[in-house]
């Protein structure tokens, strides 16, 4: 039906067309664009974290740290590039090109951090990774706060707002594509083996450390891209956006969606981003301005309780390790 050579590229092309249309239709409505962009960023974060926490069965809780690295790297690069134009291209195209370069830089910077953090820690027992990733997140935050060139505690502003629905959701789409490709490949099967029984996998000759580090680096890359995207549609970024709370939000999304299910991560990211926003707006509208603040207060303890209840009652989350596309292909539940 579709010639094999085109099979990889076709979905991406189709997505681009769809997203371009979406951009055309909705691009004007600011609040919608903001919320939808937020959702998109969270989808990238959740889907990427799922590769490590879900598919590989590790426990990384410092995702916000990688997001921060990407945000600040991309933002810092875009600042001076704001007035630069690539000759030979129309301004808009040049802007987007430079934006893409910044995003890539953010992703690569985060990936490099992922490598540096992952290689030593993934050699160790699983429990340690949690603490190390937590620590990494904190160290990043402290470094940013103490670095005037990054805006310190007050934040970095003036980043050219080149983000758009198109850009965010294209990245989301690519992230999902990559996650799916990983899951369905032999690479993914090795990750599953590591998740199910690392000792056995090692005994079967799987270089568990190498696989874990690879998953970690890929995951960090996308978190960095998510951060870069974020930096380009909010007016100012500061360390407060990348705290442990943010990391935990993503963890909750992945766990609630189902550790190992990309579909679950997407769904949970969408719901858990929209729901607080909707509740907040609702409260503000019906109970007076400022009433919405209670949502923010309650959100965190509720997330905590949600995790506990999930683990006790339904540890596989919403989707377990299944995917929406499994059923279409007739694969049924994967191990």
């Amino acid at each position: 039906m579709v010639p094999p050579g085109l099979r990889g590229v076709l979905p991406v092309v189709l997505a681009c067309l769809a997203l371009a249309a979406g951009q055309r239709l909705f691009g004007g409505q600011e609040f919608f664009v903001y919320v939808a962009s937020l959702v998109g960023v969270n989808v990238v974060l959740a889907v990427s974290l799922n590769v490590v926490n879900g598919m590989t069965g590790q426990f990384s809780i410092g995702h916000a740290g990688f997001m921060a690295v990407g945000a600040y790297a991309a933002g810092r690069l875009s600042l001076p590039l704001g007035d630069v134009a690539v000759s030979g291209l129309p301004v808009a195209a040049s802007d987007q090109l430079l934006f893409a370069v910044s995003l890539l830089a953010g992703g690569v910077a985060a990936a490099a951090c992922g490598f540096v953090v992952g290689l030593p820690s993934l050699r160790l027992k699983g429990d340690y990774l949690a603490i190390v990733t937590l620590g990494f997140g904190e160290i990043v935050r402290v470094i940013i706060q103490n670095t005037p060139a990054l805006g310190g505690a007050l934040g970095l502003s003036g980043i050219p707002q080149r983000g758009s629905l198109f850009a965010v959701w294209l990245c989301a789409f690519l992230a999902v594509l990559v996650a799916r490709r990983i899951a369905e490949s032999s690479h993914g099967r090795s990750l599953t083996a590591i998740r199910e029984d690392e000792v056995a996998a090692e005994a079967m000759g799987v270089n568990t450390t190498a696989y874990k580090v690879r998953a970690f680096v890929v995951s960090a890359f996308f978190a960095g891209v998510a951060g870069g995207l974020f930096a380009h549609f909010v007016p100012i970024i500061n360390p407060g956006s990348f705290t442990f709370v943010k990391s935990m939000e993503v963890v909750v999304m992945v766990v609630a969606g189902g550790l190992g299910s990309t579909t679950g991560s997407i769904l949970a990211a969408v719901v858990l981003t929209l729901l607080p926003e909707a509740l907040r707006s609702g409260f503000n509208r019906f109970a007076g301005e400022g009433a919405g603040a209670v949502v923010d207060q309650v959100r965190m303890p509720v997330y905590g309780l949600l995790l506990v209840v999930l683990m006790l009652a339904r540890p596989q989350g919403l989707f377990g390790t299944r995917e929406l596309w499994d059923r279409r292909k007739g694969q049924g539940a994967r191990p």
């Binding site: 699983g126 303890p301 509720v302 905590g304 999930l310 683990m311």
Partner: peptide
């Protein structure tokens, strides 16, 4: 073990 770890973090967060 991962299940208990997640629960522990959940409790910490909730409290």
């Amino acid at each position: 073990k991962l299940t208990a770890l997640i629960t522990a973090i959940g409790i910490s967060f909730a409290v």
